[in-house]
Design a protein around this nucleic acid. Structure first.
Lengths: 322, 322
DNA sequence: AAGATGTCTGAGCATATGCCCATAAGTCGA
DNA sequence: TCGACTTATGGGCATATGCTCAGACATCTT
């Protein structure tokens, strides 16, 4: 009757494991106490507790609204091989997704800013980053360097409304390196001239060494922020879309596989691509239904290795099969 | 005073605690890793994990029925003709038996709450039910009606500390019907007046139709909860004991045969007896050495047809010869 | 403004935990 | 029955954890 006895021992072993797990996780006893209670050695108690957990007898649940967000974070990390993911809880329908994102994004950035070691922090632009900047607390970060990836001169010649760099640098009191050029430079000669400027080379070199980069992610539908804000023309938009553009990061468009497009508009962009030093973090900050396609592409192509997004967006990013 | 009501205020500290608790209990990370992940010190991570636990964010459940407990359940079912019995594994000496019971009781109640068909659920009071309420997961049960069998006004005029109904209704988001009267009403005239209130009649009618009733079981020794909590006087206690009282369910005392006492204190009780509709379930939730006698009497008298108790108590209930 | 009060933080330490390894106890085939 | 192999057991140790305590910080009071 080896079979029956095997079953018996298996059952009683599982029973003992369950009992030990109950005492440990529910009762809060120490393994010594469990050993005494069950009349076994401490090591055996430890093994039973471990077995209870590994066999899934113990089910742990987190009773909090961010529990779902944490699960989404884990899913996104695994699926896209990301290093840092934060998912902001949904704030109910009708609320601006960017607004919900800002405090969470600010928290992420604050963590970098609080590092005592000097960091090079590169910044893109856009509404999400602007909102993040508003949520940053006042602090003093003389040790870091903030640099901008995008030009700070809007098409009309004024400083851009969404100049994130200045706002952040002002709030956190850090040395900062703006990019003194237009977002889009139509004349190739002038563009080359800009790029030859010494201070721009400094910024470019810093950007290449960035420890962490924060960028927004733009969509390329008819309501593309680049177009709405007048940085590119309808014709540019259609051209890029025809070339397969589904999103842009720091004005650089990419296709559905997350590959940067090298022709057309890309030849007129004033600014740098997100990247930073090898092993540096590139964190995308974006949320909303229109961001799902651009985000998925950017993540697939490895343009980002970090993400701050909203609950619904995260769900959408994980919804479709691999 | 930044005293926060634990229910609605969900501050960032609790968010962080939830995050840490998730990483620790679900993710299985060490506190050092959590500290790194969250960018805080190890001590802070430890405090966050501890806070997640103490605030009841973490719920642990055992997904395995231990054979010994199953045997006790079967024994109790047969001996007392019960319909539903759950026996929680022992938690070792020195631990509060009520606390050990709570997760199991919550599981039982959760099963009713998950019914899609509308149910009328009646609730008593007491420490065991209160502890059960703490273990309930957040859910939405608009279809059910929760009613209280006991008054919610303590002798000192405040709402009772153990107001189970509100806590449960708040956690599971169900319509609820409290009993707006004192637990004990000394003046007979006033008592009649209370009972004549229309809303009380509504509650009484609902209680009579209850599909399931959850009640604690009180003992009537010198440490009777009714007495300890100041609902009845020492004189009341001794009077009832002299009349044969060995236990009480929802403030209604009964003798060793499980027959309700109709005189004395019973004339001053504000509240309803556990019963519900014909065929409805009346589930007692109680554990501990002092509960053995009251439980045996209640089961013998058929005051309950369901039971959630602890292993030792179950053993004691089955120990003596029929 | 100064002091008092209460809360938060990080260092240090005693204890609990997890894991490796040598040894004991089975288990199976010849 | 023996020997080889697998599985379980407890000792010991490195590490993780929980807790205490003194100092920092902020808030409130006089």
């Amino acid at each position: 009757m080896t079979k029956k006895s095997a079953l018996d021992t298996e059952d009683s072993a599982t029973d003992a494991a369950a009992r030990a797990g109950w005492l440990y996780y529910v009762g809060g006893l120490t393994q010594d106490q469990i050993a005494a209670e069950l009349g076994v050695s401490r090591q055996r108690a430890q093994r039973l507790v471990s077995k209870a957990m590994s066999e899934g007898l113990i089910h742990v649940r987190l009773e909090h609204r961010i529990a779902a967000c944490l699960a989404l974070e884990a899913g996104l990390k695994r699926r896209y091989g990301l290093r840092l993911v934060r998912v902001a809880p949904a704030q109910g329908p009708g609320t601006d997704p960017t607004h919900a994102l800002a405090p969470v994004a600010a928290e992420v950035m604050e963590r970098f800013l609080r590092q005592p070691d000097p960091l090079i922090i590169a910044l893109g632009t856009g509404r999400a980053l602007r909102a993040m900047a508003e949520e940053l607390p006042k602090m003093t970060c003389e040790q870091h360097k903030l640099i901008s990836l995008v030009g700070n001169i809007a098409p009309d010649g004024t400083a851009s409304n969404y100049d994130v760099l200045m706002r952040v640098a002002d709030t956190v009191r850090a040395p900062h390196y703006p990019m003194p050029l237009p977002v889009i430079i139509d004349d190739e000669e002038i563009r080359r001239m800009f790029y030859a400027l010494p201070q721009l080379k400094i910024v470019a070199r810093l950007a290449d060494q960035a420890d962490v980069t924060f960028v927004g992610v733009g969509h390329m539908t008819e309501s593309a922020p680049l177009y709405i804000d007048g940085f590119i023309s309808a014709r540019d938009l259609h051209e890029q879309r025809a070339m397969g553009a589904v999103g842009e990061v720091a004005t650089w468009c990419y296709d559905s596989e997350g590959r940067y497009l090298e022709d057309g508009l890309a030849r007129r962009v004033g600014g740098l691509r997100a990247g930073g030093k090898p092993g540096g973090e590139v964190i995308g900050i974006a949320s909303g239904p229109e961001k799902v396609i651009p985000l998925r592409a950017a993540l697939k192509g490895g343009l980002l290795n970090g993400l701050v997004t909203g609950e619904e967006t995260a769900e959408a990013l994980l919804a479709d099969p691999e």
